[in-house]
């Protein structure tokens, strides 16, 4: 699995640069695209029903659905969900605060950049998921190492994208603001920060993807609650149906946050539509 944390310049920055061609109008969904996914699920069900796929290797779709309903009804799924969500939320807030603060510092001041950027660039080459052993030694096996891992995954992409977004501010626009008599603080507010927003949002999406990934890895280690705990417990009892339910919940959480960021982008970047 590879998640890129490097900055991606996804959008034009100046009034003169022509942005991407207009986004395609939303067309009614092409139902034919559902044919093969549905066929695969049916095939899976058929393999399970005929015994080709034994339930201790992979439960059938119907069993998975039943397990999901059972877990939801007795509240086990809800409480596991809440624990996992809290971990991601706390880790995200801490990581985002660190990443954004350092990104602003390095972006707005040459001296801070000289001091901050080299160590951050070196650290980001470490695969952060590999830090688990150290985090366990430092923080024990409670909530702290999990939250720290998620915070690390969030901080780096936000730092990198905010920093490079600020650095890519169009000097022509800054000059125009200078001619209008804008002070440095006003130029930062009206020109620099708004022009860093598109790339920071790219960073936000990468950060959220990394946050969920970090959660999943962190919860494989000594989780006594949460979705990961649910999955590990189920493994002990060969409950492949519950394992699949846990995986589906992870996937849904990831999709939901991604959709939220997309919504945010549409709103914040509506000036890019033409």
């Amino acid at each position: 699995m590879s998640i890129s944390t490097t900055g991606v310049l996804a959008r034009p920055r100046t009034a003169d640069a022509r942005p991407d061609p207009p986004a395609k109008k939303r067309r009614p969904p092409d139902l034919r695209r559902w044919i093969s996914p549905v066929a695969l699920v049916l095939l899976w069900q058929a393999a399970s029903s005929t015994g080709v796929l034994p339930p201790d290797e992979l439960a059938s779709p119907v069993t998975v659905a039943r397990a999901a309903v059972d877990l939801a009804v007795d509240g086990e799924l809800g409480s596991a969900f809440a624990v996992s969500l809290r971990r991601v939320a706390v880790g995200f807030v801490l990581g985002a605060a660190a990443g954004l603060a350092l990104g602003l510092l390095a972006g707005l001041s040459r001296w801070s950049e000289t001091l901050v950027d080299p160590p951050v660039q070196m650290l980001r080459t470490l695969p952060h998921l590999g830090l688990i052993p150290l985090f366990i030694l430092w923080f024990g096996i409670g909530e702290e190492p999990k939250i720290a891992l998620i915070a690390c995954g969030v901080a780096f992409p936000l730092y990198l994208n905010l920093h490079s977004g600020i650095r890519q501010t169009d000097p022509d626009l800054l000059e125009a603001a200078r001619v209008l008599g804008y002070t440095r603080a006003e130029r930062v507010r009206h020109v620099v920060l708004p022009s860093a927003v598109p790339q920071t949002l790219v960073g936000l999406r990468i950060a959220l993807g990394t946050a969920w990934l970090s959660l999943i890895v962190a919860e494989q280690v000594n989780a006594d609650a949460g979705i990961g705990h649910l999955i590990n417990n189920a493994r002990e009892f060969l409950r492949t149906d519950v394992v699949v339910v846990g995986l589906l919940v992870y996937a849904l959480l990831g999709l939901t946050t991604d959709a939220l960021v997309r919504g945010l982008e549409r709103r914040v970047l509506r000036w890019q539509t033409r």
């Binding site: 009034a15 003169d16 022509d172 626009l173 125009a176 001619v179 209008l180 006003e186 020109v191 708004p194």
Partner: peptide, 27 residues
């Protein structure tokens, strides 16, 4: 007071047109 119009319009794309004009009035 000095104003400049450059070869490129140099408008801030994230501000609506009237806000770009009122930028000239500084805030």
């Amino acid at each position: 007071t000095v104003s400049v119009a450059f070869q490129q319009p140099r408008l801030l794309p994230w501000r609506r047109v009237w806000r770009n004009v009122s930028l000239g009035l500084r805030g």
